[in-house]
Amino acid sequence: MSKQGQYAHDSKLLFFGKIIASATHEIKNALAVINENAGLVIDYSTMRSEGVSPDLKRFETLAGRIVDQVKRADKLLKNINLFSHSLDEPLATVELNQILHLLAALSFRIASMQGVTIQVLPSKTPVEATTSPFILIHILFLCIEFAIQAADKGDCIQLEAKKTETGNSVRFGPLSKLEQMPDETWHSVSISEVLPMIKTGVIADKESGNIVLVLSEYRE
């Protein structure tokens, strides 16, 4: 493959593109909802000027919907902004629960298209890791993508970060179809290229239906 071809198919760029495409699709949906409900307000205003008086509560409901969708789009934009800033520092101390919440929000649409939901389990204490934030987010996203493939329609994939003796771990599961997933599926995912970059490893526990990402403690 030419250098240009390699650049265009760089897994980091593909990952970045996938996240932005999914989030902007969601923003477009929020704008479409705003458009329809604002259109309805105009329709009812026109009817009022023609002597037909719709219930004022209807206006309140429509305005409320518009406000909610503006909040939805704003949250999406904040998440894209946070995600983009993960490239700022090559090495930083991050809180894993915050990153899992960000990824759960950014993967919402990808999961919902497969009929799957994602839930971050709260942890009592912060789970901090010193690492490359962008590579960590990339690996966590690849794990979420794999988890979505290994989940059945209607499943809720839990994400749980924990402190361990040698570093941290993140669990993805339960995954109903993990046992049926051929090993090649896992190896074909570009994760094997990225995992060693920040000293991480993945364990697929087919018996419990969970995959666990193990992050070793950072040492200079």
């Binding site: 909802v33 329809e36 309805l40 919907r65």
Partner: peptide, 15 residues
């Protein structure tokens, strides 16, 4: 699948 979009569109067509 966006309920607040499809219901509003339906209402506008009904009007």
């Amino acid at each position: 699948d966006e309920e607040e979009l499809v219901s509003a569109l339906a209402e506008r067509l009904t009007i």
